[in-house]
Design a binder for these strands. Structure first.
Lengths: 162, 162
DNA sequence: TAGCTAATAGACAAGCAAATCCCCTTGACT
DNA sequence: AGTCAAGGGGATTTGCTTGTCTATTAGCTA
């Protein structure tokens, strides 16, 4: 019982994009900043692109850019792209009749799902950024991480010349 | 994002047992009543047995019996046996330091998990039974289901005699 | 327009949960 | 003690999720 890996990756990426507005972020930069595998990240971001949450630009100076305003963008928007919350609509036992009404057990389970959904709908990406907390978004972008991002941005290809 | 199949099966079985106190329920009966596969059900129930939630009796007139009082038995007790709620204890990015504190994103995700956990801890099995609702537990045990249970109890082996 | 760069798409591999099957052990009743 | 009914547990299969790799397409710069 947890949010799927993929959904978590997507959230990290969106938070990172919201933190770095303006210039497009390449897969390399995003991967370095969010600690998600370079080869998997594109897979995660594609559904977000299709949903219009971010746009991608090919070629030189390309990368991913957040399209939606973080103030109006919720956790739910991202999660439902890659790992939708599964509400219980009818009784899984599928007995006779009883469409539209759930038994106590499945009602209780669905209530819990509704709770999460509600919570995710109310939490905006923006609210994760200007937390006045000591812990910055994405669990601190420390020196190591920043260095990784810088090298991802500038000198990844320097391996050729050696 | 959902409760796992296995956890759902376990809950169904426990509710069924709570509804049928007294005599032990065989795998056949339980499977018929909860619509869970006869071959998979034992696998689901084993962890519950180890946790002392139910006891199993082998041999003739054997079967599963609920050990705990439904009033004190919560959804959480069952769920944590077969599909524990995964709380986020440290930042999945695992950067330097920051043990004990979560960044806003992961804090938000963990809050949601805490919410569910809290809800499950507060919902007892008993509360799913004496709901005065029109919909009985397990989404109506209708004629078809009862017939299946009866045949599971009495005449499953009648195939031999023919 | 040529050439480089970066995202895209698809095939492909690995790891894990769900489900099934079969044989073994245990226990009750005769 | 013998026999049959019932759960226990291991081996196996299937399918989904996660992850990797490569060839292709698109866009920017010169």
């Amino acid at each position: 019982m947890a949010v799927s890996q993929t959904a978590e990756y997507a959230l990290r990426a969106v938070v990172w994009l919201a933190q770095n507005p303006g210039e497009p972020q390449t897969t390399q930069q995003l991967a370095a900043g969010t600690k998600v595998s370079v080869s998997y990240l594109p897979k995660v971001l594609q559904p977000l692109g299709r949903a219009g949450i971010l746009t991608s630009q090919r070629g030189i100076n390309g990368g991913y850019t957040l399209e939606r305003d973080p103030e109006g963008l919720t956790l739910m928007d991202i999660v439902s792209c890659v790992d939708p919350i599964q509400r219980i609509k009818r009784c899984p036992l599928r007995l006779s009749g009883h469409v539209g009404a759930l038994c106590p057990l499945h009602q209780a389970l669905d209530d819990a799902m509704a709770d999460i959904q509600d919570r995710f709908e109310k939490t905006t990406i923006a609210s994760l950024l200007h937390k006045d907390a000591k812990i910055p978004p994405l669990c601190d972008i420390s020196k190591e991480s920043m260095a990784a991002v810088a090298s991802a941005k500038n000198g990844v290809r320097r391996a050729n010349s050696d």
